[in-house]
């Protein structure tokens, strides 16, 4: 197992490293930065702001304590006589989040890694949406199709068949029987249970 893992890891990293981009020209100070640089002066500002918040907080606490000790012996609440009993009115602002993943009852219906996004003539945009929004693993199909559908990874596995039906229902696409002819030679999808075959119509990611 160890030797197997070692050699497979080396091969995998060989594949990844083979995709290393060219270094190109040396970067200059005009080059776009990924994240803003933290300078000593910005750190000073953060420290000063934190100290100010702490001082204000302590001062507030001291003031509250002082106020409560001044009035602790004479607290008598007497409501004014001319105040009518008004019904409490509460305005509810319900915030409905926009889901980016299909969810049901607080649990994601489609778990990351459950789906293989099988690109059967779909646009790159559709495949990237499948990856980003459904946590799917992208793979190019051996042949193209017009329409999108789902099929189980293992046609003999009842949970895969059920998962395919669930995904089909959630995405509004058809379920079809497993078709090995769609898969590229040697591709394995262990860990996934559903192939989402995205056809040239880009369903369910057509804009």
């Amino acid at each position: 197992m160890n030797r197997d893992l070692d050699s497979r890891l080396k091969t995998t990293f060989d594949r990844i490293v083979a995709k290393t981009p060219e270094i190109g020209d040396p970067p200059t100070s005009d080059t776009l930065r990924l994240s803003p640089e933290t300078t000593p002066s910005s750190r000073l500002w953060v420290a000063a702001a934190a100290a100010s918040v702490a001082v204000i907080g302590i001062a507030g606490l001291v003031a509250i304590r002082a106020a409560s000790s001044d009035t602790s012996d004479t607290v008598v609440a007497t409501p004014p006589s001319n105040v009518a009993d008004l019904p409490a009115v509460t305005t509810l602002h319900s915030v409905v989040p926009t889901p980016t993943t299909v969810v049901e009852g607080g649990t994601a219906v489609i778990q990351p890694g459950e789906i293989v996004c099988l690109n059967a003539g779909a646009s790159e945009h559709a495949v990237s949406l499948c990856v980003d929004e459904l946590g799917g693993v992208p793979l190019d199909a051996a042949v193209d199709t017009d329409n999108s559908f789902v099929m189980p990874v293992d046609p003999a596995n009842a949970s895969h068949i059920a998962a395919a039906a669930k995904v089909a229902d959630a995405l509004g696409v058809d379920t079809r029987a497993f078709d090995p002819g769609l898969l590229p030679l040697g591709a394995t999808a262990r860990g996934a249970s559903v192939y989402l075959v995205i056809g040239s119509n880009d369903v369910p990611f057509a804009s």
Partner: peptide
């Protein structure tokens, strides 16, 4: 790479 590689190790990549 998957288009030209006949045996991608998807499990290990993942």
């Amino acid at each position: 790479a998957w288009n030209t590689d006949p045996t991608p190790d998807l499990d290990l990549l993942r």
